[in-house]
Computed example of a mutant assay.
Amino acid sequence: MSRAALIAQALTQACLADVRALKPGNVSVYSAGHGMVADDFVLSAQAIVEPLTAPGLRVGTRILKAVEATRVAVGCNTNLGIVLACAPLAQAALVAQPGTTLREGLQALLARLDVQDAEEAYQAIRLARPGGLGRSPTHDVGEPPRVTLAVAMAAARHRDGIARQYAEGFRDVFDVGVPRAGWALARWRSEEWATTAVYLGLLARAPDTHVARKLGPAVAREVSVEAARWDTALMRCHHPQSLMPMLLDWDRRLKRQGINPGTTADLTVASLFALSLQDILDKEFGGRDAVPSTAAPSAGLRSTLH
């Protein structure tokens, strides 16, 4: 199987694991919410795989084509954050060369993003019409960009968690999400519970910026405080199924209040995807990416699923 095909498979699996896992406040097979159902996300995942993983495209083009495909498939914004987060990861893996880790290649790629990437990403964001977007005094997406995508994302890093990844080399993904996914997969041998563990771990460490934009920073902080309690409980749990009733209750409470930590869910997908990409490159190059020591010594999400 070609590298591009393996990357496409990894992206599909990360997106489907996200839908199958319980992520309180977010849509999953356990509960619809926010005007969407799990099938919307399955269809969206199928729509974005080809444009995000086909060889020969630039990052901005991948983003725009993936959002266009999503609009055709489901007619609403289900996955803009996933597209924005996964496009550079896929690109970095597609062009990776031996001797360079996925993280190093991604950082070099982010530095090369240009104004054309920004133009196409802005088009995609306008097409997706994400909730709580509002207006920005600098580099507003409603106006033609005059800076590179990297500069535009850096300007938005304090109000958007995906932009923060572009500005900081996907630090949350590689320092929190990837090791958490590896650890949880080794502990429970369940991609669903590993997904929940990544989601709670990320949410506990940083208030969700989607929640903050829509409902205010105080609400976002409250959600993170509660996530930290559940994260601690899950990390101590040998049988995470025992927490299911309480997590489902929290899920219902969040959805009744219209609270959706959507950016955290997007970063969860990116973390699962990055773990699998590392595994793909390790196997091709015969090396081992620099995964923090808290990660499990297992293969990646891809190998765990088969």
Rank of each mutant, 00 (worst) to 15 (best):
W183M: 09
T232C: 14
V173W: 03
H158W: 05
L254T: 09
P144D: 07
V225A: 15
P130W: 01
P240K: 01
Q257G: 14
W230R: 08
H238M: 13
G161P: 06
G177A: 01
A186N: 10
D160L: 08
R213P: 05
L133V: 04
D175S: 13
L200V: 11
R171N: 12
G131H: 02
T232L: 13
R229Q: 11
R171E: 11
L234A: 12
A181I: 08
A204M: 01
P130I: 01
D160E: 06
V173G: 04
W188C: 03
R256F: 09
P145L: 06
S224I: 05
L254Y: 12
G177H: 00
W183C: 03
V198Y: 10
V225K: 12
T138Y: 03
V173A: 01
Q165I: 06
P145N: 08
V147R: 11
L202N: 08
R236K: 12
A186T: 15
E192Y: 00
D251C: 10
A155K: 02
D140P: 02
L200A: 06
D175L: 07
Y199T: 03
R164P: 00
Q257R: 15
A204P: 01
S224R: 04
G258E: 10
P207C: 03
P137N: 00
D208H: 13
K214H: 08
R236V: 06
A150R: 15
L202E: 07
D140K: 01
W183F: 07
R146I: 02
M246R: 11
E168R: 12
V178G: 10
D251A: 10
A206C: 09
T195R: 01
A186M: 13
P245L: 05
S242H: 06
F170T: 02
H238K: 13
N260Q: 11
R205A: 14
G201N: 09
D251H: 11
R205G: 13
A184S: 13
E168H: 10
E168Q: 08
A150G: 11
M246A: 10
E191F: 06
E168A: 11
A218T: 15
S224D: 06
E191A: 14
P145F: 03
Y166H: 08
Q165G: 02
A228M: 04
K214E: 09
L254S: 14
A154V: 00
E191W: 10
A233M: 14
T209K: 09
A156Q: 06
R171T: 09
A194N: 09
R157S: 14
D251W: 05
R164F: 08
G177P: 02
A204R: 07
V211P: 09
A204E: 04
S224G: 14
